[in-house]
Computed example of a mutant assay.
Amino acid sequence: MEAVESEPEGVEAAEPGPARSVMLAGEVPGYDWESAREAVRNLGYGVVGRADDSTVLLILGEGGERNGSKLKDAAEFGIPCMDVREPGRFKAAVLSGELSGGDPLPEPAKADWSQMSTRERNRVVRAWARENGWPSLPVQGRVPMNVRHAYELAHSEAPGKTAAA
């Protein structure tokens, strides 16, 4: 007969809490999109596009200040920020096994499309798209219209049609 382990009498098994997750905003210096996320996952965190109850950190990379929705979520939920725009900071954190916040949260930047080249605009849209549900978006070529449209909707000032007076 096999021995069956059970909880001591009067002690209930602890339910596991939600897995900790982080948001990544922008490009991490020295890492491509997938390797940065894989490094975070290897440390035991999930990677989410929008904050939820399990989100414990915002990792801010190059251009992260352009992701207004993640910055807004971080401010609203009181999520600490880890600014990794300085080369080597993310790698040092990964090697130490400790991702920690405490850096100031920047104000969301308004994208001035008139002063950006087409290549820069595509880079901004691609970074946003990868963080918001299009992980297989090609790194080169034309940005699909549905992705560009979703980006524009997400960054529009108007929440909807206004009622006529």
Rank of each mutant, 00 (worst) to 15 (best):
residue 139 V to C: 02
residue 92 A to K: 15
residue 11 V to S: 14
residue 36 A to D: 03
residue 149 H to C: 01
residue 27 E to W: 12
residue 37 R to T: 08
residue 34 E to R: 11
residue 93 A to G: 01
residue 5 E to H: 12
residue 55 T to R: 04
residue 13 A to D: 09
residue 47 V to R: 01
residue 132 N to R: 07
residue 83 D to F: 05
residue 135 P to W: 13
residue 136 S to Y: 03
residue 83 D to G: 08
residue 136 S to F: 12
residue 81 C to Q: 07
residue 72 K to Y: 03
residue 108 P to G: 10
residue 30 G to H: 07
residue 97 G to C: 08
residue 86 E to R: 15
residue 50 R to F: 05
residue 60 L to T: 10
residue 106 P to D: 11
residue 61 G to W: 08
residue 140 Q to M: 05
residue 21 S to E: 14
residue 129 A to P: 05
residue 113 W to T: 05
residue 124 V to I: 06
residue 29 P to G: 04
residue 91 K to I: 03
residue 150 A to D: 12
residue 29 P to Q: 10
residue 101 G to D: 08
residue 12 E to I: 13
residue 55 T to N: 03
residue 13 A to M: 13
residue 64 G to P: 03
residue 98 E to P: 00
residue 99 L to W: 05
residue 78 G to D: 06
residue 47 V to D: 00
residue 38 E to I: 09
residue 36 A to M: 04
residue 51 A to G: 10
residue 157 E to K: 07
residue 47 V to F: 00
residue 38 E to D: 12
residue 4 V to S: 11
residue 105 L to H: 13
residue 12 E to P: 06
residue 138 P to Q: 08
residue 152 E to G: 04
residue 133 G to S: 01
residue 120 E to W: 08
residue 80 P to E: 09
residue 119 R to P: 02
residue 99 L to Q: 01
residue 97 G to W: 04
residue 44 G to H: 02
residue 155 H to I: 06
residue 80 P to R: 04
residue 117 S to D: 10
residue 143 V to P: 01
residue 139 V to T: 11
residue 85 R to H: 10
residue 131 E to N: 04
residue 6 S to I: 15
residue 163 A to L: 13
residue 125 V to D: 01
residue 79 I to C: 02
residue 157 E to W: 12
residue 125 V to E: 04
residue 163 A to E: 12
residue 86 E to A: 15
residue 156 S to A: 15
residue 165 A to G: 11
residue 149 H to W: 14
residue 16 P to L: 13
residue 8 P to S: 14
residue 59 I to P: 04
residue 53 D to V: 12
residue 80 P to S: 01
residue 24 L to E: 01
residue 46 G to I: 00
residue 40 V to A: 05
residue 130 R to S: 00
residue 28 V to R: 03
residue 101 G to W: 07
residue 68 G to I: 07
residue 41 R to Y: 02
residue 158 A to L: 14
residue 56 V to T: 09
residue 155 H to N: 15
residue 26 G to L: 02
residue 11 V to C: 11
residue 30 G to I: 05
residue 5 E to I: 12
residue 108 P to K: 03
residue 82 M to H: 12
residue 157 E to C: 02
residue 91 K to C: 05
residue 60 L to Y: 12
residue 146 N to Q: 13
residue 130 R to T: 04
residue 59 I to D: 00
residue 151 Y to A: 01
residue 36 A to W: 07
residue 150 A to Y: 06
residue 17 G to V: 13
residue 116 M to H: 13
residue 10 G to A: 12
residue 25 A to Q: 02
residue 159 P to E: 10
residue 110 K to Q: 11
residue 66 R to E: 11
residue 165 A to M: 11
residue 116 M to S: 06
residue 71 L to C: 06
residue 131 E to S: 10
residue 74 A to G: 10
residue 96 S to H: 03
residue 136 S to R: 15
residue 14 A to H: 06
residue 126 R to H: 04
residue 42 N to L: 10
residue 102 G to Q: 09
residue 38 E to N: 11
residue 83 D to V: 12
residue 70 K to E: 05
